[in-house]
Structure formats: structure tokens, C-alpha cells
């Protein structure tokens, strides 16, 4: 298993697409900080009662949301690039224990996505706080120590999406098909669910992957397309399920399928 993880790590860091995806993620985080500068200027020009409606949190969460998509794309490419070139056969010849191969891939992409996810979410939070300085935005009055856990939880959504991408890639073997599925789960499906009649939009909206971090952290879902019906523990279980159930299915299929 150690050999397999080391080999997959070498694979991931020896192709350019990895650096492109991570660069896009980093650039977008920088863009979030620039938008925060702009919001600080807006704040300065507003009257006191309009300031009470100006929220910073949606902007702070944008980075993690985009990082989820970027790392899901990386998860997809990590396996579909092997199917596209046929290198999967070389991989399976080197590591004929297919569960070990998939676990090694999951461990590597999961770890990279967790680090990237935390860097983006925590970076967005601390960075935007630094940018607004002492301006008392209505949703930024709590201390950094108080709000930080929520962002740490949001960072864990990124590896879930990366693993989801990896599993979809194994199941579909096609880059295009997997990317479309990832984007569908990431944003199209939640938008469709939001249009459902009540109470279904609330109920199903509560189990969408993008809305789980808020429920785990015990935050509400105002101004959001997601629901907030789940207690924190259940939401955490659902989030873990999004990572592990597709991965288990992918392992089941991978072991049985001719390569």
C-alpha cells in the first residue's frame, strides 16, 4: 500500500494538468481577495442602514465552492487520463490488486484536495478579514476563533468532491462524461432542486453536497439554494457518504471489470 501511494503521488505530480488545476484554484482565491477590496470600498460609501444588509460571508465561501469544482476535475482526470491513453493497463499490470490501486489513488487525491480545500477556505476567510480591516460587516462581528471552525468544515467538502470525481471517472471511464456529471452534481442539480415545490426543495436541498458544510457547522441556510434540516452529525454522515459510497461502488466495478 505504501508503494502504491508513493507511485500514485509520483504520477500526480509529474503531469502538468495537476499544476494547472491548482493554479486556477489559487488564482480564483486571489480574485476573491480582490473582490473583498472592492467590497471594502463599497462599505465605505454606504449609509449606516444599508451597511446592515451588506454581507461578506457569501464572498468568503466562493473560494471553497470553486475549489470543489477544480479538485473534482483533478479527481476525474487522475483516472480518466489513464483510461484515455490506455495507461490504465500499465497501472493494473504494475499493481494487479485493484482495490489497493484505487485506495492509493483516493488517498493521494483526497489528501491533496484536503490541503488545497483548507488552504482556500481558511485563506479566503483570513484574507478577506484582513482586507476589510476593522470595518464591522454585520456577519463578521464574531472573533476569528469563533468563525474559523465553520471554514475548516467547508474545506472538507473539497476532498469529498475530489473523491466523487475520481469515483465517477472509474465508473464512466470517460473524461467528458465524468466532468458533465461532476458539474451536474456540483451546481446544476442543486439549482433544479431549489425549483421544486415546498417542502421538497427544502428536504432534498438539505442533502445536496454543497449545503452540508453549513449544516455541520450549525449555520443557517438563508440566502442559499440549500436546505438546513439536518442536525450536524447527520450532515457529516451524509457528506462522508458522498465520498465513500461512490468510491465503494467504483471499487466493486473496477475489481470485476475487464481492463
Amino acid at each position: 500500500m505504501v508503494d502504491a501511494v508513493a507511485a500514485e503521488w509520483r504520477k500526480l505530480r509529474s503531469v502538468r494538468s495537476t499544476y494547472w488545476v491548482l493554479a486556477v484554484t489559487a488564482v480564483f482565491t486571489g480574485f476573491v481577495l480582490l473582490l473583498a477590496v472592492q467590497m471594502a470600498h463599497v462599505w465605505d460609501g454606504l449609509s449606516a442602514e444599508r451597511r446592515a444588509d451588506l454581507l461578506l460571508r457569501p464572498l468568503q465561501e466562493l473560494g471553497g465552492w470553486v475549489a470543489s469544482l477544480c479538485l473534482a476535475v483533478l479527481g476525474v482526470l487522475f483516472i480518466t487520463s489513464e483510461y484515455r491513453t490506455g495507461m490504465i493497463r500499465t497501472s493494473l499490470t504494475a499493481l494487479p490488486r485493484r482495490r489497493t490501486l484505487l485506495l492509493a489513488k483516493a488517498a493521494v487525491i483526497g489528501a491533496v484536495a484536503l490541503v488545497a480545500g483548507e488552504a482556500v477556505t481558511v485563506g479566503s476567510f483570513l484574507g478577506t478579514r484582513a482586507v476589510i480591516g476593522g470595518r464591522p460587516f454585520p456577519d463578521q462581528k464574531a472573533s476569528i476563533a469563533h468563525d474559523l471552525p465553520g471554514f475548516l468544515v467547508a474545506g472538507t467538502v473539497v476532498p469529498v468532491f475530489a473523491l466523487l470525481g475520481l469515483s465517477l471517472g472509474v465508473l464512466l471511464r470517460s473524461t467528458a462524461g465524468s466532468l458533465v456529471s461532476v458539474v451536474f452534481l456540483w451546481h446544476v442539480l442543486p439549482l433544479l432542486v431549489f425549483q421544486l415545490p415546498e417542502p421538497w426543495s427544502e428536504r432534498i436541498g438539505s442533502v445536496m453536497p454543497g449545503g452540508l458544510a453549513h449544516q455541520i457547522a450549525g449555520l443557517g441556510a438563508e440566502n442559499s439554494i440549500y436546505g438546513d434540516l439536518l442536525p450536524s452529525g447527520t450532515a457529516a454522515a451524509v457528506l462522508i457518504g458522498y465520498a465513500l459510497i461512490p468510491l465503494g461502488l467504483a471499487a466493486f466495478i473496477l475489481v470485476r471489470r475487464d481492463a
Partner: peptide
């Protein structure tokens, strides 16, 4: 098996 089955971006 297939010499073409390598990822072109890797050294």
C-alpha cells in the same frame, strides 16, 4: 502490451 499507452505529458 501497447507502447502508445503512455500519458504524453509525463517525462
Amino acid at each position: 502490451l501497447d507502447a502508445g499507452a503512455v500519458q504524453g505529458g509525463r517525462r
